[in-house]
Every structure is written in C-alpha cells, then in structure tokens.
Amino acid sequence: MECNGCEFRPELYYDDQYQIWARREEDGSLTVGMTDISQTVAGKILHVRVRRPGTLRPVGKPVATIESGKWAGPVPNVFDCVIEEANHDVLDDPNLLNIEPYEAWIARVRPSGSVEDALNGMVTGDAAQAGYCERTRREDIHCERGAR
C-alpha cells in the first residue's frame, strides 16, 4: 500500500515522524532502515556510516549517518540499543537505500531493554499508516525510487 507514491508496510514499526522502520527478528534483535519517505526527502544517497558493532547508542544518538548531495545527517534512533551488525551491501552501495528502502536495511541492533519496550515507543499497523499518509500530505511528499 502507498500514499502519494510512498510505499508503506503495515507489519513494520515506525518512529513518530516515519523516518525509520524497525522489524522484530526471532533472535530478539531489531532490524532498522529508512522509510520510502526518508529516502525521497534525502535524495540520492552517497554515503552511509554505521557505528561499530558493540557500540551503545542511547536515544537521540544515531545508529547511522547518511550523506546525499552535500547534506549530511543522522538516521535517528528512538530506543537505547547496541549495534550488532551493519548491512555491508548498503555500506558498499548506499544507493540501494533509494532503490529498495525496505529491503536495504541499515543495521541490526539489540535493544538495551526488552524488545517490547523498544517497540512500544513506535507505531505500527493502521495507526502508523494513518500517520505515514498524513505526513506525505502535510509536507506534499511524493516518493520516487532511485534507479540502479
């Protein structure tokens, strides 16, 4: 499903600005990535940097940074976590974030508290879809995917 051409996946969890998505993994970790909205707003992404595995990232300290054009900034983090793994395919080819933002995950992280606590601070399902669509309308965001 989509809004203004921006793909939305109801099974994922989102921050309240729909900048990042998170997916629960069977081993108790979370996989995080950028939403279609975020990759569109950022434009062509040229660099991604993920902090080293084992690094503790408190709320507000980014798991990763990106650069597009000459803009640099954080991929926000909304729960305390430890970085377990970066997606090396994305590190080698950051443009993947523009092509397939929901397959091109950025990092696997382990929440410092329980997974439930981490996800409780995020939105999912119908409520997330409503908020996601509202942001695309409010900011007049029309998503475009990058080409390889």
Partner: peptide
C-alpha cells in the same frame, strides 16, 4: 548542485547538515 559562481568560476562552495 551546491555552488555559487561568477561567470562560470566558483566563488562560494556550500553544504548542509540536518538533525
């Protein structure tokens, strides 16, 4: 994408950061 020029010659380079 990010320069200011005078007659084809750069006089100001620019860049941004967001948070």
């Amino acid at each position: 994408r990010n320069d200011i020029e005078v007659d084809g010659r750069k006089i100001s380079g620019t860049g941004g950061a967001f948070d």
